[in-house]
Design a binder for these strands. Structure first.
Length: 613
RNA sequence: GGAGCCUUAGCUCAAUUGGUUAGAGCGCUGCCCUGUCACGGCAGAGGUUGCGGGUUCGAGUCCCGUAGGCUCCGCCA
């Protein structure tokens, strides 16, 4: 290597300085229009593409704002043009040049800057680039490759657009809540494990051997304690952590728009959130969504749509046909009905042409293996054909007539039945409903169907644990009208003051009015099987706080990632997170999580029991 | 914990019923080209068909195992 003296280096640097203006750039690649013709500008960016004609060379220069065509003309700037032959995709360059009108008829209507071009008089290569491992503008490239080189993937227009949109949504949220007197307050990331709900991520404490923090699943207790603290209106763009298996719309760390307020009822919170969503959709997507949103009770949602987050963009509702078969000779239906179960059906209009007998068999297999259903009864009525079904032979003529009448069953349709206890019957049929809608193309992508699902049950019985568990969380307020039921031990009939906001069949968020009285909270813990001692150990601080004048309060949390995903029209939550993890919780770029050496573990008093493959 | 689908050149894919030397487009390299914008032309390089084993005269193709990716069920308030 040649040794260059520091003096010579400085001289060279000065020379470069003299060659280029002090600023890296005077314009971005989306700034220049006809008005700028004649100006001398400096641009920086990446070589998006080059078109080398041997003589004249065109470069599309890209920065995060857009593309500008740069022209290297040998007859005007021979040295610079010569150097430009070496430019390759993704090289980072700086050019100085004059803004010129494009030659007659050579404008590019696809580019915002397509009326002009910059004739380069100076070129500085700021950094050469290796050949990219995949074409940046190809949407078909495998996602794992994009995730490994996420910093390249994020250079593409769709990803930039998503991140901008996410920023806009967060900014709008802060503005909106600030205007209404909400204070953004940070809560600890190192906090306590929670006995209820999802698995915690644990963090060992070096200073307190053998003890652990947990990363928060949500800032639930802190947001309530801030109400006891008299802050009255709190919000936070809060990172949350749950160590559970992942899905296309679930990451181990995700972000919630977390809101809590005092002296507020459920309708007020819903109205606040409707206003927020209206504003977000206006500013991020440019659409006006109507508010207030429709309300639907949990019972209605289950009975009509087989889901607690119904997609109401299409009908295909569940219909109760129990009375038709009340006295049926068909034992399967009869046994379930006599045992207090329900019998429901949906009519997939026109589905007969789409579903062969083999496919119907596969659907039955699907509900059995995926959802543990006992079966999926169906009747297919092909155009010009008979009722095809393994079960119609058990139906009387009167039952058949009544069924067809009730369901509007005509040639070309397929009926599906759900027969079981209420919730499993509805849920399975709800899944079949979604699949039918997909099959029949019933989903209108342009619709934005918001709704509130309200009156959730407070408690559900867990067969695994053989006890009652909180449907929402243990701090949820029971409906005042149902307190007598609570006292009487009719736990499953007690409704909660809890609400979910749903968009197109996706749960955007949920919240509740909380319990603020120590005695009522203790009563709920008792029902949940949390004894006085356990209450004291795990929730003592909260119960103590409630004894010092806790105001009535409630709140909600919205899943920011899902919201951005829906607004951006992305199919996966990973498309709206800068550096997401894959479905095994691995960051393919950094390879996180990684093994740590023995010494690092010893410092925090941890010994791994993992068996090495 | 379970189910399904996928893995062939840098990328996206093809390869008939198991049959010759595994192909194409894009990208890349070199040369040519002065108005392109998916520039064009000519030439070239590039392969352990994820990995391991088996069946077979013969395996990208069939079987078993395994790794990785995606989707879903359970799980996730």
């Amino acid at each position: 290597m040649r040794c260059i003296s520091p003096l010579a280096k400085r001289a060279a640097a000065h020379k470069l300085r003299a060659l280029f203006p002090a600023m890296y750039r005077t314009k971005t690649c989306n700034d220049l229009r006809k008005d700028h013709i004649g100006q001398t500008v400096t641009l920086c960016g990446w070589v998006n593409s080059r078109r080398d004609h041997g003589g004249v060379i065109f470069i599309d220069l890209r920065d995060r704002d857009g593309l500008t065509q740069v022209v290297f003309r040998p007859e005007e700037h021979p040295q610079v043009s010569e150097a430009s032959h070496a430019l390759r995709s993704e090289d980072v360059i700086q050019i100085v040049g004059q803004v010129c009108a494009r030659l007659e008829g050579s404008g590019n209507a696809k580019l915002a800057t397509g009326d002009i071009e910059v004739i380069a008089s100076k070129l500085r290569v700021l950094n050469k680039a290796e050949v990219p491992p995949f074409p940046l503008d190809d949407p078909k490239v495998n996602e794992d490759l994009r995730l490994e080189y996420r910093y390249l993937d994020l250079r593409t227009a769709p990803m930039l657009r998503n991140l901008r949109m996410r920023h806009r949504i967060v900014k709008t949220t802060r503005d909106y809540l600030d205007e209404r007197g909400f204070l953004e307050i940070e809560t600890p990331v190192l906090s306590n494990p929670t006995p209820e709900g999802a698995r915690d991520f644990l963090v060992p404490s070096r200073l307190n051997p053998g003890t652990f923090y947990a990363l928060p699943q949500a800032p639930q207790q802190y947001k309530q304690l801030l109400q006891v603290a008299g802050l009255e209106k709190y919000f936070q763009i809060a990172r949350c952590f749950r160590d559970e298996d992942l899905r296309a719309d679930r990451q181990p760390e995700f972000t919630q728009i977390d809101v809590e307020a005092s002296f507020i009822d459920d309708v007020e919170i819903q109205t606040l959130i409707e206003g927020l969503l209206v504003r977000i959709f206006r500013e991020a997507k440019g659409v006006e969504i109507p508010a207030p949103f429709p309300r639907m009770t949990y019972a209605d949602a289950m009975n009509r749509y087989g889901s607690d987050k119904p997609d109401t963009r299409f009908g295909l509702e569940l219909v109760d046909v129990a009375d038709v078969f009340r006295d049926s000779q068909f034992k399967v239906f009869r046994t379930i009905l006599d045992g207090g179960g329900v019998l429901k059906a949906i009519n997939a209009k026109g589905a007969a042409a789409h579903l062969s007998k083999e496919q119907l068999k596969k659907w039955e297999e699907w509900v059995k293996t995926e959802f543990g259903a006992k079966g999926l009864a169906y009747i297919k009525w092909s155009v010009g054909g008979e009722w095809e079904s393994p079960i119609v032979k058990f139906f009387s003529d009167a039952e058949k007539a009544a069924l067809a009448e009730r369901m509007g069953f005509v040639e070309g349709d397929v009926l599906f039945f759900g027969a079981d206890k209420l919730e499993p019957a509805c849920e399975v049929l709800g899944r079949v409903r979604l699949r039918c809608a997909d099959l029949l193309g019933l989903v209108d992508d342009t619709k934005l169907n918001f709704l509130w699902v309200v009156d959730f049950p407070l408690l559900a019985f867990s067969p695994e644990e053989q006890k009652h568990v909180a449907v929402h969380h243990p701090f949820t307020r029971p409906n005042a009208d149902d307190v007598a039921l609570l006292e009487a031990g009719e736990y499953r009939k007690v409704r909660a003051v809890a609400y979910d906001v749903v968009l197109n069949g996706v749960e955007l968020g949920g919240g509740s009015i909380r319990i603020h009285e120590r005695a009522l909270q203790a009563k709920i813990f008792e029902v949940l099987g949390v004894g006085p001692e356990e209450q004291e150990v795990k929730f003592g601080h909260l119960l103590k706080a409630f004894s010092f004048g806790a105001p009535p309060h409630g709140g909600i949390a919205l899943g920011l990632d899902r919201l951005v995903m829906l607004i951006a029209g992305a199919s996966s939550i990973r498309e709206v997170i800068a550096f997401p993890k894959n479905n095994r919780g691995v960051d393919l770029m950094t390879h996180s999580p990684v093994e740590v050496d023995f010494k690092q573990l010893r410092e925090v008093y941890i010994q791994s029991t993992a068996k090495k493959g």
